[in-house]
Amino acid sequence: MTATWAALAAAVNAAPDLHGAACAGQWGLFDPADHDAKETAASTQQRHERAIAICRDCPVLAECVTWASTLRPGEVSGVVAGVVYRPPTRSLPPFQRRETA
Rank of each mutant, 00 (worst) to 15 (best):
H48W: 13
H19F: 11
A14Y: 05
T70A: 07
E49R: 13
R86V: 11
G78Q: 02
P32I: 08
G78A: 02
V80W: 11
G28F: 10
P94C: 01
P88T: 09
A81E: 08
T2I: 03
I54R: 04
L92E: 03
L61Q: 12
W67G: 08
A15H: 09
A37W: 06
A42Q: 15
G74T: 02
Q45H: 12
V84M: 02
V12K: 14
P16H: 01
T40K: 10
V83M: 11
H48S: 00
R47Q: 04
A10F: 01
Q26T: 09
A9G: 01
A14C: 00
G20I: 10
R47P: 02
E49F: 01
L29C: 08
R98F: 05
F95G: 07
L61V: 10
L8T: 12
H35G: 06
E39D: 01
V83I: 09
M1D: 03
A14N: 15
V60N: 03
A10H: 09
P88N: 04
N13M: 10
W27G: 14
A101C: 10
V12F: 08
S77E: 11
H48E: 11
V79T: 09
A81F: 04
Q46M: 11
A24W: 15
A42S: 13
S69D: 15
N13I: 11
V60H: 07
P73K: 06
E99H: 14
I52Q: 10
E99V: 15
A7W: 00
R72F: 00
P94T: 12
D36A: 15
T100R: 15
T40Q: 07
R56P: 00
P16C: 05
D31H: 15
A3Q: 11
E39F: 00
A101D: 13
